[in-house]
Design a protein around this nucleic acid. Sequence first.
RNA 1: GCUCAGAUGGUGGAACUGGUAGACACGCAGGACUUAAAAUCCUGUUCCCGUAAACGGAGUGCGGGUUCGAUUCCCGCUCUGAGUACCA
Length: 1187
Amino acid sequence: MDYQFKDIEKKWQKFWADHQTFKAEDKTTKPKYYVLDMFPYPSGAGLHVGHPLGYIASDIFARYKRLKGFNVLHPMGYDSFGLPAEQYAIQTGRHPALTTEDNIATYRRQLDQIGFSFDWSREVRTSSPDYYKWTQWIFMQLFNSWYNKGADKAESIAKLVEHFEQNGSAGINAVCDDEVLSFTADEWKALNNNEQQAELLKYRLTYLRESTVNWCPALGTVLANDEVKDGFSERGGFPVEQKKMMQWSMRITAYADRLLKGLDTIDWPEPLKEMQRNWIGKSVGASVRFAIDASPKSSPKERTLNQGEANSLSFGEGRGEAIEVFTTRADTIFGTTFLVIAPEHELVAPLTTAEQKADIEAYITQAKKKSELERMADAKTVSGAFTGSYATNPLNGEKIQIWIADYVLAGYGTGAVMAVPSGDQRDYLFAKHYNLPIIPIIDIQKIETEADPTKEGHYINSGFINGLTYREATAAVIAKLEEIGAGKAKVNFRMRDAIFGRQRYWGEPVPVYFKDNLPHLIEEKDLPLVLPEVDKYLPTESGEPPLARASDWRYSQGHAPLAPSKSPPVGETLAADGGENLPPHLTGIYRETADPFYYEQLKGYSSENRKEPTEAENILWQLLRKDQTGYKIRRQHAIDQFIADFVCLQKGLIIELDGHHHKLNKEADDARTEVLNYFGFTVIRFTNDEVLQDAQKVLDQIKEKLNSSPDRISSTTSAAKVSPPVGGGDLEEAITTGAAKVSPTGGDLEGAITASAAKVSPAGGDLEGADPAGAAKVSPAGGDLEGADPAGLSYAYEHSTMPGWAGSSWYWYRYMDAHNDQEFASKSAIDYWKDVDLYIGGSEHATGHLLYSRFWNKFLKDIGKVVEEEPFKKLINQGMIQGRSNFVYRLVDELGRGTNTFVSHGLIKEYRTSPLHVDVNIVENDILNLDKFKKFRPDFADADFILENGKYHCGHEVEKMSKSKFNVVNPDDLIERYGADTLRMYEMFLGPLEQSKPWNTNGIEGVFKFLRKFWRLFHDEALNFKVSGQEPSKAELKALHKIIHKVEEDVERFSFNTSVSSFMIAVNELTEVKCNKRAVLQDLVIILSPYAPHICEELWVLLGNESGTLSYAAYPKFISAYLVEDEYAYPISFNGKTKMNLNISLSLEPKDIEALVLANADVQKYLDHKAPKKVIVVKGRIVNIVL
RNA sequence: GCUCAGAUGGUGGAACUGGUAGACACGCAGGACUUAAAAUCCUGUUCCCGUAAACGGAGUGCGGGUUCGAUUCCCGCUCUGAGUACCA
């Protein structure tokens, strides 16, 4: 029989599933090996073409390790909470759980058909209550822990409380909030429970605090730093703003140093480690206090003080007496000629003198107006304002000015810098711009045109460090600062605590309820806290997150003990005073300020984002207004979350005017165009210049467009027509390209929300079926709670949910013991599996998932639950898959209009053409299939071609893979055509795993041919299975052992592409000698099976082995003796250039070889009777004759 | 700007510690089989000169260096990709 890959692959996939062939053992004497792929989010678009690349590599490795006798854990599951399913729910009302379920089914089907050796018995889903029960449980452990810097590990809050009770706050060295109280043991005991809880919250590893967050109005949620790119949300490309909000945070900063140090112990790609190092951003330096000077110019009376803080400001004491700066160059302190503080700095108001007040206020207003984007584009502009106040340099007593400027960031260090213009370029520019002094401090410094940050040379103008070197000076300065109490050595980190909450529905509920405005953990026995059902997936009218819609969803303290205690167990709240005695800064902190007024945001968004009209806009408006075009045009109109410059709702035409159209805007513009197109709007763009130069021409073009466009949709139906993305399959694409939260409408924004909300179908019945546990578990203050007083004992839960990274920060442990309902994983399972030996995935997780996972892992180790400090020993980034687009070239006539004639790529220089994307699936090896092309678009049906040698050659280019560029190749199609084994081998054959490469199927034929050739080794001419029992020849054994060795080497260093080549060479060699000997072929089947498992299973059984035993066969032993040669064709080179080869016995020593070579007639010809200067002989390698 | 990675035929890529550059595959050209096509097989294929061939010259982004010998090591530069950015 010929190679029937379809039957074979189906058959073996079924066999593996039925027999659980790849189930990892729990109890075994075999060594363990844990191979893991990065947790996929099951998007509606199905498996992205980049995914199989990593999965195939890890699968080959897993299968190889099984052959090598390891007990391999190779699991797969889904990170199934996430935004796309929820966006889809908002648009359609379909429960995210259902969408997720469908997407997972698609994923699973695709994974199965590639023949992966996953242990599916361990599959996990983060959105399943069995799973997120433990995510919540870990959250509770974090809540119950604090970081003891002394012990350099997390410890239980109970231990902290114990310390407070015995010693007060003295002797505590914790990573905590800045403004913690200091108290004695007695003072602590005198605090009531709420006060104690409020204080403890400042220490917990997960805590609630008002912090500046990345707020994305369009997504209606906060985002983590790594989810924001260039001021836009990574997902969707929506604008992100800074906003102060009460938020759950994770004290990852406590682990900053350990996260940094751990990088040196793990085998990860260097760029990835570097990214983490940058993200953590450790800088070693000193903090220095500059006393604020009460100069005559700014007597305290004249100061414009703010609020209560100012009243308490008496000079010489209190926190206002000095400005603290952080510097990495304490040695340059004598070059400090002014201080700069951030405009947001708390001392700005008290430091501003009456004379300077106007300046400062103007500057602050202007700085606030600048968007994130403008600030970035504007990095070169120097701006700032003088406060009028002075400070004193602690080391030389110099009086220096205090300025504000936005080049100093409030969030880094202390939000203040000592400016040393001679050494720092930003300070230099600032000093030049405002005529501030610049003092050179190192003898070799060159500062005529720019700052010189050198550390070489000796100090000058620097008091007691004059003449010292950098090392000496730094030490001396810090010692002096410490001595006079003006500063100390300090380490600073760029990394911030991670925000741990999203104002979204589809995520893990936070196992917390609120009592007296304070957060309290629910009891462990009440886990999991199941996600409640809601009527729609939007924020409430008052702006609370969607979970607030579940009004019955409240925590009932059914059986909680009520006995008051001075230091209660964490997680219970027992206060009887109702929270009235809270410290002032904590009253009302949460409910009142926590929740974003999403609704208001959206409404307010349009007015906030209206730009000042430009001149061009005004001109155009005069031409467009009052139906002059025959159509009603609106100006600055909100459509979806965008503001259109002009829009004709009737025609669905948007007219955009772009001023400066730089790169940053372009992506956002393209994304929004795509979204608007999606909803039936057409966008045309003009530049300001076009309007200013010839407004009439622009107007004519607009008119033409209006007249030629069909009406969009009637305004009455437009609001109701919530156009969901075309089917679930498109969901992710829609989101990533910026799909809208609400439908765009012809009418006003408010109408849009109501309309889309109304459209949401209350999918009640279905949902209960889908998640019965959910409904039962959360029954609110129900009758079954014995004697509970619904009014008094039910409390609101936290309404935000956990962020996307929560569930993925520990999942590798769950695979070790996936069905445990007593623990997240048993101690014995963790002791056995320990950590992930090989982790494969994309580098896009560098600063998100991979950092958070290391953080949680270290925490779990601190509390004794896991054994390894680092979770992922070896990590490989698979390269990104780029798209490879094909182009056809449309002939253009004299007027610049496209014709229906297409010119082959080789001839385009002779014609005027314009390139056009063409679907890569109708192009093979860059040759266009003309028939398919004619069917590609109706207007191509009668296309003409100008061909080369009867063929149409397409152009090609590497660009992003996207549907709009017609360069998406679906793995399903390739499997249909060539089978999974071919796909697997081809993906590996493409090139090194880590390298980015365009997705191009040009060479797939070669791999397919190879497998057929391999198949034929086992068959005779008539394709009957036929192997012989003869002893293999020397050449056959050599070919076999060469490949045994080569594949071992290659797999161990993850060089899969080279081993595919070697397989081809081996099969070519064996075909050459017509080898069909069982002794050779059976071993070859084992070696190839990790790469092409289906065909190998089939041949394995044909060879007479038992079905299913191949996966656990023993990898053949390499015997080097078969490779030993007695002769070698030595390359003979002259001056390094190889001229000929000579067969010489390998037993000869260099001296004899030299004699032999020089005696050779051909060599003599080259020597031309001259004696060589020198002869180099490397045994078994080369002979080089120097002339 | 900074950090990191990379640059080899028409294409993907190989050459592991400095030792025959271009393995393997695609594509292309020619041929065999076939009424024809598909499939399969064979031959050639870095470039230049000569042009049947031997043979000769150049050649791993560019310019230098170390070495008997450099795609590999060192110095300087160009370009591409990724990450990051008023981080004090």
